[in-house]
């Protein structure tokens, strides 16, 4: 069989914000669907601690990290949806692009991925400064038993495992998932073989 070498990746750069996001790109579930969830968060880069000789330098995005002001998030729920595993191909795969907000916040409203195995959303991160996108997964905190049986989560050091589990927010069906590209609490990123 022919085996072609892939075209190399490059960074998305800083100026995609007027090009890639679709109107409604983060609004993925059909309108009025009864079982939608909202996932949202920020992307942070590495150490943002004040540099020597520059005391008091303001750091966006919380202590020790700089929020990435623009990050494109592609996401796809896997393992079927809550209502119909057969419906995945047409209704529950999507690309959610964070609009280019100065606060680096992204969000998407989608269908809840279904059991039987631990459900998750596949996430792909693009940013200026990132030469090759990164894959990760968003698992849900209420599925402790299923998550414990998940081969990927089970193989991780417990402290790192937590980086793949979203936090439930007070509002039902809302989850926070922050992504840390580098440093303390660095998100687990994946490669596929």
């Amino acid at each position: 069989m022919t085996q072609l070498s892939p075209t190399p990746s490059h960074t998305v750069g800083p100026f995609y914000g007027y090009a890639l996001p679709f109107p409604g790109g983060g609004d993925l579930a059909p309108a009025g669907h009864p079982d939608t969830i909202t996932v949202h968060g920020r992307v942070h880069d590495g150490e943002g601690a004040p540099r020597p000789g520059r005391p008091g330098r303001a750091v966006a995005g919380g202590p020790g990290r700089l929020a990435v002001r623009r990050a494109r998030i592609d996401a796809a729920p896997t393992r079927g949806t809550g209502d119909s595993p057969g419906a995945t191909a047409s209704t529950s795969t999507f690309s959610a692009a964070s609009p280019p907000t100065p606060t680096a916040h992204w969000s998407a409203r989608t269908l809840r991925p279904g059991a039987p195995a631990a459900p998750y959303i596949s996430v792909c991160v693009h940013a200026r400064g990132l030469l090759h996108h990164l894959y990760t997964r968003l698992y849900f905190p209420e599925n402790a038993r299923l998550n414990a049986a998940d081969p990927l989560l089970a193989a991780l050091d417990p402290a790192r495992r937590e980086t793949l589990v979203a936090t439930a927010e007070p509002q039902p069906g809302t989850y926070r998932f922050d992504i840390r590209l580098q440093g303390e609490g660095e998100t687990v990123f994946l490669e596929f073989r």
């Binding site: 960074t11 880069d45 590495g46 943002g48 200026r128 990927l152 790192r160 994946l190 490669e191």
Partner: peptide, 14 residues
């Protein structure tokens, strides 16, 4: 710009 935007931990193979 890549200095603070690359993971230092190895990728986990799936």
């Amino acid at each position: 710009s890549s200095l603070l935007r690359h993971p230092k931990q190895p990728l986990v193979a799936v």
